[in-house]
Design a protein around this nucleic acid. Structure first.
Lengths: 325, 325
DNA sequence: GATTTAAGTGAATATTTATTCATAGGTGGA
DNA sequence: TCCACCTATGAATAAATATTCACTTAAATC
């Protein structure tokens, strides 16, 4: 019986605190006890489940999928965006918006941003960033050379420049092709002082924004603008690669896949990426699902922004192997 | 769209704070924002009803009835006890237990307790009090003389003495009948130095424990032990009295009813009672409902302890008149 | 386009809450 | 009955949270 009276009292205290929003000191005075006791009663009220706190996710948000992604891949954070249809265009737009919002909200002063320029999703992100008046970031560093024809390469530089302008940072473009003609050609290009200067900043990057690419005839070929030969692509596939970040490949287990191509790519390596404080990956879409799954397993990524359909597929995938790092 | 992203973020913060029980500073660090912002987001989460806190009353407690009583009668507190049947014996036992628990939990050091001795419910309370080793109260003052035959009078004194012993206080009994034979007899009795000493303490009482009596042939007559004549009782009834506290009467509107009897009663007055810091009334039962209703309307009572049946009747009673003081 | 108004931010600070500490009473075993 | 141990308490204090302040930027109005 005395326990019931005690619970009765606890319930009353909980009522006064949570519903009537009185301060503990006032409740204590009212009931002639110490504030410490009120605090303890409230703790007990939690334990006894006399007070219950529920967090309701607003519709259009996917807290559960996010939690699932975090748990499955050991991510620091995950953002799953609403998306009406499972179509690449729509998905990129939504991810870009969310990424822009996230960047604006969490960008630190003096940040060194690395951006793997050739990704349409990242482009969408940049389009959605509002100019920040007080220069927040320090440098924006392009982490992969331009791709394909000079026009597209120009575009990539512009993306970097624009992001730098929006964040009030200094732009460090990588005035080189993403893929050199040969190992020797790469060495020559690396001799350029501007290229070298930018690449030396790779180690200083505090926030990297990257896209994830899928390795499969259509995707890869389309993106590469024919800089890789069919033969080379076949090699990559045979080596087990399922996707790339900045043209660095990994397999479905998240293991890095070394290929002769590495010798020709001018851009950040996965090892360098792994050392960056925050690595944010932007990717979604049916065709990229496997690539994203592998990318997450590399342990390089801290935060993934994706769409609800892809998130669902990533969480569903039955692979008993335990998640990344 | 940005609003959705903001809500998404708020929901995530709420999740981290309420479910994962992380500190605001840690959440802030994780999401790269200031603790102040996290605090604000959590506030917003409340407003947006993303977090909901519910207080569930443990079964066997009647938070709603208590709230109803408080609202209707302007009480500081109300305690409604579980009770299996609407029968006086059972009700008194439960109220007594609850009162004992409440007293133990909230008794202040140096308290001067006034106790209107002749009430079976109060007796039950005293029976349930555990002895308090460290003398908590200062005095226990009997606020109404004994009633009826000397044996019963003795009993009343014992109740006071016992309560004093249990609370480690000094007992101040009122060695006089509760009702003198006449106005003159009362004056003589008041001349007694011990009686006077006790009555002078009435003004010092910080906590009064009283019962509520019903005015109706059976109740009143039974209690009075024939000290009041039929004629006198009829007068009281005609004056509109519905009940009494310490033999001081009031009507159904809570207005004090002065009667010739007042001249004969040796005990605390309602005016004196009104000045006491905490007045705790113990009463329940079908027959006392109207008396309790009137008593609460006097505005003298700060805290009522009653049973669920009586509480229900008190809250239900439709009297549009607005509640007490 | 200029100017006022409103809204949002982090650092500093005030306020509120949780915990530690010292103490006291209760409990159960020898 | 006495002792060891456990629990509960309030005062003091540590820790955590809310608010103020000064400032910046976005939006609204002229």
């Amino acid at each position: 019986m005395s326990r019931l009276n005690e619970l009765r009292m606890i319930a009353r205290v909980a009522q006064m605190y949570h519903v009537e929003r009185q301060r503990q000191a006032d409740i204590a005075k009212h009931l002639r006890m110490s504030q410490a006791t009120v605090s303890r009663m409230l703790k007990k009220a939690q334990e006894e489940e006399i007070v219950r706190t529920t967090v309701v996710a607003p519709s259009g948000t996917y807290a559960e999928l996010e939690a699932g992604l975090r748990a499955r891949f050991g991510l620091t954070e995950a953002i799953v965006v609403e998306c009406s249809e499972d179509r690449d265009g729509a998905i990129m737009a939504r991810i870009g918006e969310a990424a822009a919002h996230f960047l604006e909200a969490t960008l630190q002063p003096e940040e060194v941003i690395g951006v793997s320029s050739w990704s349409e999703t990242i482009l969408r992100m940049v389009e959605n960033i509002h100019p920040m008046k007080s220069g927040k970031a320090k440098y924006v560093v392009q982490t992969l050379g331009g791709m394909g024809n000079p026009t597209v390469q120009m575009h990539a530089n512009q993306l970097t420049t624009r992001l730098a302008k929006l964040t009030g940072a200094e732009a460090n473009v990588l005035s080189a092709p993403g893929v050199a003609q040969s190992r020797e050609a790469k060495l020559v290009l690396l001799g350029d002082p501007f290229v070298r200067e930018t690449m030396e900043l790779f180690g200083k990057i505090t926030l990297a924004i990257i896209g994830i690419g899928a390795v499969e005839p259509s995707g890869m070929l389309a993106r590469s603008g024919n800089v890789f030969s069919k033969r080379e692509l076949a090699d990559v596939t045979e080596a087990g690669a399922v996707g790339d970040m900045s043209l660095r490949f990994f397999d479905s287990d998240g293991k890095f896949v070394k290929t002769p191509l590495d010798e020709r790519v001018i851009g950040i390596t996965l090892e360098e990426l792994a050392k960056v404080d925050r690595v944010i990956a932007l990717a979604g879409g049916q065709t990229k699902t496997n690539a994203i799954d592998g990318a997450l397993k590399t342990g390089v990524i801290d935060l993934l922004i994706t769409d609800k359909f892809t998130a669902q597929r990533l969480v569903d995938t039955e692979g008993q192997r335990n998640a990344a790092e």
